[in-house]
Amino acid sequence: MMTKNADKKREQMMMFSMDDMVPQNHMLRLIDKAINWNFIYDLVEEKYCPDNGRPSMDPVMLIKIPFIQYLYGIKSMRQTMKEIEVNVAYRWFLGLDMLDPIPHFSTFGKNYTRR
């Protein structure tokens, strides 16, 4: 069967749940279920000012992104960010929806040196 109009599907608008897009047995889903990430907020609370400065990034996300990089053997943070941009499971794990912006890769170099 020859399909000439395959490109038209790219413009389709669909409603979907990201939770439904990530298989129940996906490694990141199992890890997320096994680890309660809330302890990170207590560890970094004194590093964040509640009433001054720019809006902060979620510290749990700052931990989970290098976690993804290590688990999947991605060689650089720049490449990790490119992968997160298009991978639904990575976005689900980080708590990002499909339209949320991805942190800039340089954030992690600064984060490593400052903290």
Rank of each mutant, 00 (worst) to 15 (best):
M13D: 09
I84D: 02
P23L: 05
Y70P: 04
V22H: 06
V44K: 03
M77W: 00
G109Q: 03
K64Q: 08
M13W: 09
N52K: 15
V60L: 06
R10P: 03
K4L: 13
V88I: 15
M18I: 13
H104G: 07
F93A: 06
M27N: 11
I63H: 04
E85N: 14
S106Q: 06
W37L: 06
I31E: 03
S17T: 10
L62Y: 01
F105H: 15
N52Q: 14
I31W: 01
N25F: 10
D97H: 10
K8N: 12
F93K: 04
I74P: 04
I31A: 02
M1Y: 09
D32Q: 07
I74G: 10
E85R: 09
K75W: 01
P50S: 11
S17H: 04
V86R: 04
A89L: 07
T107S: 10
N52W: 12
M98K: 09
M18P: 03
F67G: 05
N87M: 04
K4C: 09
M18T: 03
T80L: 00
D100G: 12
Y70G: 12
D97L: 09
P103F: 01
G95T: 11
E46H: 09
T80Y: 00
L62K: 03
M81L: 08
N111A: 15
M27K: 14
R114N: 00
P103V: 05
I102F: 02
D58V: 12
R91D: 09
H26L: 10
E45I: 10
K4G: 15
T107K: 03
R29Y: 05
M13C: 13
N87C: 10
M81F: 01
P66K: 01
D20N: 14
Q12M: 14
F93M: 07
C49H: 15
G95K: 11
A89C: 14
E83S: 07
M98F: 08
I102W: 01
Y90Q: 05
G109T: 10
D100Q: 11
F39S: 11
L71N: 06
D97T: 15
R10K: 15
I84V: 14
E46R: 06
R91T: 11
Q24H: 08
M57F: 14
M13G: 09
M57V: 13
K9Q: 05
R115F: 07
Y72Q: 00
D20V: 07
T107P: 01
I40M: 08
Y48N: 03
E83I: 02
S56Y: 06
R78I: 01
I84G: 03
Y72L: 03
Q79I: 02
H26P: 14
R54I: 07
I74V: 14
T107W: 00
M18R: 02
L62G: 04
E46D: 15
L96A: 08
T113E: 00
M1V: 11
I74N: 05
I63L: 13
Y112R: 10
M61N: 03
G95N: 10
L62V: 11
R115P: 01
K33W: 02
S76R: 09
E11A: 12
P23T: 12
D42R: 11
M18G: 08
E85W: 00
I63A: 12
S76P: 08
F16I: 13
K75E: 11
D58G: 09
K75F: 01
N52V: 15
D58T: 12
D51I: 12
T3R: 14
F105S: 10
K64P: 08
Y70K: 13
M57H: 14
